[in-house]
Amino acid sequence: MGMISNIGAYSFLMSRVFKKPQKRKIFIKSLLREINDLGVNSVGLIAFTSFFVGAVVAIQMYNNFKTSAFPIPDYYVGYATKVVLILEFCPTIISVVLAGKVGSFIASSIGTMRVTEQIDALEIMGVNSPSYLILPKVVASLFFNVILIMISLLMGILGGYFAGSFSGSWAPVDYVQGLQMASPDFFIYYCFIKTIVFAFIISTVPSYYGYTVKGGSLEVGRNSTSAVVWTTVLIIITNLMLTQLLLD
């Protein structure tokens, strides 16, 4: 019953979120602020993480190929690294990282407004508080998470390139040749479909936990933790469902 009631409350909240903003100028101002808070401030973390994981993926691919019973050319390191980053690492693992960073920020910021009665004040003034507080976060996430994943792809590929350059395990020209090998166009569509779905989860689930918090600062912290946990769980489950649906 608790799970069903939570789903019902979440659905009702979302029905209030996706309504036309009451004042366009205020919405645009809030949207720009959320793009900075949720997106721009995450670029450094995403770039750093993607660069080193891309290097690790490339090294692992090289070692696996070298221990294979069949000789595999070095340029397949670049191709395999590219495909792994597109299919799984960038859209899924980076979204999990964002669930921790962005999700906790969203839940705690909205939760603080709830316990300090700022949301109640908005409702008294006739403001649709879910649309005012949550809609800019959803739009900002849907827009900027796509850019973050593009940055992640670029940095991951660069990480693999520099891993080969510094280790000398494979020639950079072979790595670039592997990157230029054709892969199915649908892989890119699949990557960004997952990115958009995960961005929606990252922005709405923590918003729900923050908006419905009851109590004081201690409860805000607990709800922020629950928001990150459930956002991560939903991303993993949704990843399985989308993979089965889109790649079957």
Rank of each mutant, 00 (worst) to 15 (best):
V115M: 07
I236W: 02
R222A: 08
G160H: 01
L179G: 09
V115G: 06
L218R: 15
I237R: 12
N239M: 07
F89M: 05
Y161V: 07
V96P: 01
Q244S: 13
F186Y: 11
G178D: 02
S217L: 12
V115C: 08
K214N: 13
L148D: 02
S11M: 15
A9N: 15
S203K: 05
F27R: 01
A140R: 09
V138H: 02
S30Y: 08
V115E: 07
A227F: 11
G126H: 05
A107E: 12
S108P: 01
V205Q: 12
L32D: 04
S15V: 14
V205R: 13
P21R: 14
T231S: 04
N128I: 05
N36Q: 08
I193R: 02
A107Q: 12
T49F: 02
I28N: 04
Y209Q: 12
P130W: 01
G39E: 03
S165E: 07
Y211I: 04
M150E: 00
Q180A: 14
S207C: 03
G126Q: 06
G78C: 14
F89L: 05
A99H: 03
S203A: 11
Y211S: 11
I72R: 13
T204P: 08
S108T: 09
E34K: 11
Y132V: 08
T231C: 00
N41R: 06
